[in-house]
């Protein structure tokens, strides 16, 4: 299979051309940060007709992770900290992890929780378990594996977050007016379609699961437009997403984690949107093992990331955007991660 066919310019442009027949103004939210990045990379926001507006949502796990976590981690001098590269440059109160590493902390970038397990074979290791439903099954696997091998060196700082409760909280906000959702393709690969079914019933809008190639995204927009009058959850990523999701992955998540409330940086606390490690696996829970606390970092009052994450404003509407807040000196959460809405707008949409 040649996956490049999903990047074929003539097909994409023809489809965008078809969309010009639709004249009413509509606003869709792409929930996922990787969609925001892909839309920016391919320049889709400006290629689409002006009446079709795409706004970015909360789907960046790095952005919504409270920054005080960084401070707590840097204090743990005697432990090896392993993290996805995404978190390395997120500012803590004084330092980010990259700066702490330069000063001698043992902080290592890993690409998979399995790499962290390998590192833990000969040293005490914390894996920063950051991510949404796509990433969480792999993290759950690392915990089960450590338990099975009685690997007391290994623990996970569980920062996993769940998308459907966050969407519920966002859409509950009457100020947010969107006509449909572009749903995250890879989260949906794990959870399937069912967890979104409340959206059309409760909020009267539809949602479409799409992939990340430009053709997928434009197809998703077309599907949303064609079904505005019949809001429901649709799947345009059927090559990867099964309606029921991935049951083995879901079972492993519930084996290891229980649902809890979670703090979303920029948004606040969202009920039932986080995952904590069950007491059965308490030995592998870094929060318990090292008594790590998180509190809310005081945000710059001028930073409007909360409204960006909730889809209420576009990044350029924030007074700090591209002035005092840039990817090199990020102030708010949406600028710190390269897939944050503000960073994506800075890179692609100015």
């Amino acid at each position: 299979m040649n996956w490049n066919r999903f990047r074929q310019p003539d097909l994409i442009l023809k489809l965008i051309g078809d969309l010009t027949e639709y004249k009413k103004q509509v606003k869709f939210m792409e929930v996922c940060g990787s969609h925001t990045m892909a839309i920016g990379h391919w320049g889709l926001r400006k290629l689409l007709p002006e009446n079709i507006i795409l706004i970015s949502g909360p789907g960046c796990p790095v952005c919504v992770t409270p920054a005080t976590i960084i401070d707590s981690l840097i204090k743990l001098k005697s432990v090896t900290i392993t993290t996805f590269g995404d978190l390395m440059r997120v500012p803590g109160s004084h330092q980010n992890l990259e700066q702490a590493r330069a000063q001698g902390c043992d902080i290592r970038i890993v690409f998979s929780p399995m790499d962290a397990l390998k590192i833990s074979q000969d040293r005490e290791t914390i894996f920063i378990g950051l991510g949404f439903e796509t990433t969480i099954p792999g993290i759950a696997f690392s915990i089960v594996n450590a338990a099975k091998n009685n690997n007391q060196n290994f623990s996970v700082l569980s920062l996993g977050k769940l998308i459907p409760p966050a969407l519920d909280a966002l859409l509950d906000d009457k100020d947010l007016k969107v006509d449909g959702l572009i749903l995250p393709g890879h989260v949906s690969t794990i959870i399937g379609m069912m967890p979104y079914e409340f959206i059309p019933y409760k909020f009267g809008i539809g949602g479409v699961i799409t992939g990340f190639e430009p053709l997928d995204i434009v197809l998703g927009v077309k599907t949303l437009i064609e079904n505005l009058d019949h809001p429901r959850i649709m799947n345009e990523y059927s090559r990867v997403v099964r309606p029921e999701g991935n049951q083995i992955a879901l079972d492993l998540i519930s084996e290891v984690f229980e649902i809890t409330h979670a703090q979303w940086r920029g948004i606040g606390e969202i009920p039932d949107s986080g995952l904590k490690i069950k007491s059965k696996y308490a030995d592998f829970d870094a929060f318990r093992k090292y008594d790590i606390k998180t509190s809310d970092l005081e945000e710059n009052p001028l930073c409007l990331c909360g409204n960006v994450l909730k889809g209420k404003i576009l990044p350029p509407e924030c007074p700090l955007f591209a002035k005092t807040c840039t990817p090199d000196y990020p102030i708010g959460p949406c600028m710190v991660s390269s897939e944050g809405s503000c960073a994506a707008y800075y890179k692609y949409e100015r």
Partner: peptide
């Protein structure tokens, strides 16, 4: 400004 790092998101 910064060298790119591998990421998962």
């Amino acid at each position: 400004a910064s060298d790119p790092l591998p990421r998962i998101c």
